[in-house]
Write a protein that binds this DNA or RNA. Structure first.
Lengths: 259, 259
DNA sequence: AGAAGGACCAGTGGTCCGTA
DNA sequence: AGAAGGACCAGTGGTCCGTA
């Protein structure tokens, strides 16, 4: 059943759909991101690069050239039987700014979260059609689906790593944009920016009775993501601090939690 | 952290609390269930029977006699270093009817679901206090907590096996009661009654656009239980049948799903 | 040094099947 | 034959750490 699900999942998102979607994305962003110079050819390269597993073997009949594409722009020598290269590292960019050189910008990062959402919706539609359990979050199944659909640039560790940054982008876009600008000006690296995204979120949680799950669930695009462990811990620690402080101020009576 | 959670979980539900609660339960039901003749002594038997794992070792200091209790009423020879006996099998009983002999009735079965709900609430409170992930369903963690709190008569396979019977009890108590009476009169066994619980649920799902998840979630005591796979499959199969039938009746046009 | 992601791991949902 | 539940298993959430 599960293996069969894979095949239908693949069929549901045709090669053409993917090509069209990727082109649209590339155009919409000004063609920056990771496919700067590759244009339409990128897709056939991806296809040729795809590792042929036994699972994939049964659907190699669908279209086009099997000849290798022309030399592409990636360092590392293209597709000679190898995996796709890693994604370029992120740098801190302002809104709308295109990352130069072998880098990716933060608009691209946030775009990946929207892509995952679209893959989740596909998985949900298929599950509903078949009367199977329907995921409400971006699960392993969704990452597997995304990879099978050719989105090799999406992977779980990366998406989980930056979830809270995306959360700030969703919940307070102005604050998120300001933080990006400030960290870009100070020439901070991505890790520093990522760390800095935690504090504004803790402040938002504070305003919502420290319930970070409720904060995530209140936003439709954010609610499909698991609350990261570290963010949860920070909120808890800060709540304890805040409670201790306020109770000592009020005379050290019984500890009433602030809700 | 996880091992530590176990200990606090145990401490949170004291021996006295458990005793009091069990006595209350036994009294409330007329003392039937599985502790027919044991009364208060049952508790000390449970305690003595509990297997001493290394985890348990640190809390054996809390109270009372370590001498074996008087011979108890269970077949199998009591506590001589052995596990607690299996629970008596269920038989089909009417509402309020006490099962006679070495049997348990269906009121007791449904009561176990309420007990699990209470354990879930305990686990949720502890998780919230610690700022950890808070389960919304009866998970493995809850079953582990129940076992650690001495509720050896609660286990996952049993609870999952009868979930849909409990669902019918929650969603249409009159229909559930009628079904119990009918199957008792026909002297059917528990397995037959259990099978018969599926159909009324499928009918309820039909009235709610075939969305069995929504049906479960609409009821506060039921929403903490996972929808059983087989019920989900039955609903899906019946929806397909109903859709095919109605579309052939209406002339075989495009298949509009009924929502 | 900074970052991307393959791959591992403890504990999950699910239920089979050896047991009584 | 009918039923209770220990114990297993495939696939999960989570993230470390060998890699580039």
């Amino acid at each position: 059943v599960s293996g069969d699900a894979q095949h239908v999942a693949l069929d549901a998102l045709s090669q053409e759909d993917r090509t069209a979607q990727q082109d649209k994305e590339a155009a919409g962003s000004g063609g920056a991101w990771d496919m700067v110079a590759a244009g339409g050819r990128k897709v056939s390269m991806k296809k040729n690069c795809r590792r042929r597993t036994s699972k994939m073997g049964s659907m190699e009949d669908d279209e086009e050239d099997d000849s290798e594409g022309a030399e592409d722009d990636e360092s590392g020598g293209g597709c000679g039987g190898r995996e796709r290269q890693r994604e370029h590292p992120f740098i801190v960019t302002e809104v709308g700014e295109v990352a130069r050189g072998k880098k990716n910008g933060l608009d691209y990062l946030f775009h990946l979260y929207e892509l995952c959402r679209e893959f989740l919706i596909q998985v949900q539609n298929i599950a509903r059609e078949r009367g199977e359990k329907c995921p409400t979050k971006v699960t392993n199944q969704v990452f597997r689906y995304a990879k099978a659909a050719g989105a090799n640039h999406i992977n779980k560790p990366k998406m989980r790593h930056y979830v809270h940054c995306y959360a700030l982008h969703c919940l307070d876009e102005a604050a998120s944009n300001a933080l990006r600008r400030a960290f870009k000006e100070r020439r901070e690296n991505v890790g520093a920016w990522r760390q800095a995204c935690y504090m504004p979120l803790v402040a938002i949680a504070a305003r919502h009775g420290w319930d970070i799950d409720a904060v995530f669930n209140s936003h439709s695009r954010l609610s499909i993501w698991y609350v990261p462990t570290k963010l949860r811990q920070l909120c808890h620690a800060e709540r304890s601090n805040a409670t201790a402080a306020s109770s000592s101020v009020t005379g050290g009576g019984a500890d009433h939690l602030p809700y």
